[in-house]
Structures are given as C-alpha cells and as structure tokens.
Amino acid sequence: MDDLPHRMRAAVDVPPPSRIDLDTFIAGEQRRSRRMRWAGAATGAAVLAAGVLALPPLLSGGGGPPVAAVGSPGTVDCPIPVPTVSTDTGYTGPLPGDCAQTIARLGGVLEAALGALVPRPGGAAYRVDVLVYLPDRGVYDAWFALDGPAGSGFLNIQIGRAPHEAPELNGECDMAGPTCTYERTADGTVLLSVAQGGQSRAQAFLPDGTLVSAYAYEQAGNYLGSPPLTADQLLELVATDGLGLFPAGPVDPSPARDKLRDLPSAQPRLS
C-alpha cells in the first residue's frame, strides 16, 4: 500500500459511527416544511388582514394614529378670529368669534351629551380639554376612549364648516345596506349614519353650515367587535343642540375639495 488512493481508502476504512440518522433527519425536514408552510400562510393572512384594516381609513383620508391624543390635554392652536364670512380662505375658517370661547362652548356641550349617552363610573365628567382646533383642516377635533355597553373603543368627534351642501342621499348605503340611514329633519338638519364592521359613523349637516361628524370604533381595531357607541347613539350625539359653529347665521359651504376626506368615515389627521 504505497500509493495515494490506497492510503486514502485505508485512512477512512474504519469510520466511527455516524451521528446522522436519516429517519430523524427526514422527520425534522418534514416538520420544518410544515412550519414554513404554516408560517407562510399566517404571514399572508396577516398581510391581507392588515391591508383590509388599513385600506378604509386611508381611502377616507385619515391614517394617523387615532389614539395619540386620547385622554391627553389638547394643545389649542387657535387661529386669529375671522369676524366675517366674506373672505373665503378655503377649507380653514372662517370661524365665528373667538376660538378659545368656541372650544369652551363646544366642550361643554359635548361633555353633557357624552355624559348622558355613556355615563362614566361614579358620574365622572368627560375631559373636555381633549377638544382641540386643527388649523390645517379647520375643524375642532376630540378623541375619547369609551367603555360603552356594547363594547370598548374610541370616539372621534369633528366639528367644522361643511365642505359642501348637505347630500340628497347617503352614498354609502349602496355598500353598507340596511345599516345606514339618511334623514332630513324639519329644521333642515341632514343626518347620516353607517354602522358596519365594528365601527359606526354619523354626520349632521346643520342648517348654519356646520358639519358635525362622529366616528366610533371598537378597541381591537379588527372590525369584528362592537363599537362603544351605536350609530343611533352617534346620531343623537351629532344632533345635539349647541354644536353649531355659526350661531350668527348660516354660511355657505367651504369650497369643494377632496370629497374622500369629508365622508363620515374620515379619520382626522392629528396635528
């Protein structure tokens, strides 16, 4: 045995027992394949669910983190009061009177209305200082975390100048079906509501040109549970007396803008 091939074969002639067990190896690989398939399916489902959840708010012009301002004192950034309605500056303004006074007035109305709709344990009052003015959108905006009889979740209220005339019908009824409503009251207020998939929305086009929007959705945000307020409760809320911005008289709607941002489902972008 004096050549290289023979020496090589001699060197490996008596190998030690192998640590490789083919059956164990194959079983392990089959387990891994199953796990990968499940992980792939779960990832796909998660991406799909995220898309389904994210799409409606994005389409409706929102998308900002909805709970950022819940329970925290709002920073009121009031614009310089514009006393008349003649100089139309677009979506922002004109606002009647003093902004701070308006906030205090609207906050008081909302506190009373919410306290009646969803009483807090021990009769505690809602913090009205969460109501802020968003100058870039020209709306007064408030977020509340609620524990209602139907479920827990969040409520967003926006009060601003109506971007357009009150609609003649509820455009969402085609998709939402019987869970949407449309009503024109005797005083000219137009009320719209939609309840669908763990959320409920309502709007009130007030005769003075104010649009009051309310949007409630359930805590998990998966559009499967119940919102803290029903559509009927939201309708009652938006129709509360005293939420009009123009007590001195009706104003025309704001110039037309992106209608998607003004649908009842609009989630405001927090400033």
Binding site: M8, L22, I26
Partner: peptide
Amino acid sequence: KDADGFREFAAGRLDAWRRTAYLLCGDW
C-alpha cells in the same frame, strides 16, 4: 416529496459521503 426515494438514495451513499468529507476536512 419522495421521502422514501430520498431515504433509499441517501442510505446507500451515506458512508461514502462521510469518508469523502473526512478526507476533505480531516475531522469526523
């Protein structure tokens, strides 16, 4: 997968592969 075919193929060649690998790396 054809696990049986794989098992049959690998079982018949496992020792040869180990020997080749040992000569390549010098450690079992």
